[in-house]
Amino acid sequence: MQNIDDSLVIGGKALSGRLFIGTGKYGDDALIPQIAEASGAQVITIALRRVDLSNSRGNVLQRVPEYMQLLPNTSGARNAEEAVRLARLAKAAGAGDWIKIEVISDTRRLLPDGYETAKATEILAKEGFTVLPYMNPDLYVARALANAGAAAVMPLAAPIGSNRGLSTREMIAVLIEEIKLPVIVDAGLGRPSQACEAMEMGAAACLVNTAIATARDPVKMGAAFGEAVRAGRGAYLAGLGRVLEAGAEASSPENGALTGFLNKTAP
């Protein structure tokens, strides 16, 4: 567990865990509480859909531990209006007032629409929602979201569900430097080492769903991501050591080495 002084505060709520997990793509939803426990995650995403009589897996909320902070998303929204509608439905359905805005109209690339996301963020923040927008790591979009009242920004590491890792590393680093809000790396992280690197860079948290859900053992992978995020945060707080531009520098003292002494021939 992180030191209590290092809790991440979002929407006035202090979170001790910096890994957020999802609830999608699990072969068996009974894994969800096990992954929640193994990973130490405190925040969990859910989605809204029509009740489907032909294929109902039941309400996923029954699988979410009571202590967790729900983060419903607006997946399926193609514009700001639909995102706002879904956010209000999520609140009315009892998920509280946190919302992950996700506006995607390109069904092939699945990249978020920054303009529509900012519009939805402004409307929902004014209504009192704690808004966490999913975004491309673009500095100007991030500023627009901050001005619109976002509680955090959630840049993608790589396209949704791809497990391709921190392909937007440099742009995320720019957001971490320039944006005062927590930067939560979302989408595309495939390995614990990539989540760890994002945290070392100063990301406030990471959201991981597919990499855990598609692992051979999702519970073990959830635990591994939890450890990676904690390690990366610890490294960030410790301050990474400097990098030499060139050459090398021995870690052991150069003076008083026995071997140099022994190699000298006696007079």
């Binding site: 999802g22 609830t23 999608g24 995403t45 989605a47 029509r50 897996r57 419903p72 998920a95 569900g161």
Partner: peptide, 26 residues
């Protein structure tokens, strides 16, 4: 439709009803 209003709303022809719940998502 707020839960407290479900009991006094009568369905009319052509009403568009959406019944929504939470599913797994990321």
């Amino acid at each position: 439709c707020k839960p407290e209003n479900l009991g006094n709303r009568i369905l009319n022809a052509k009403d568009q009803v959406e019944i929504i719940h939470f599913v797994g998502g990321g």
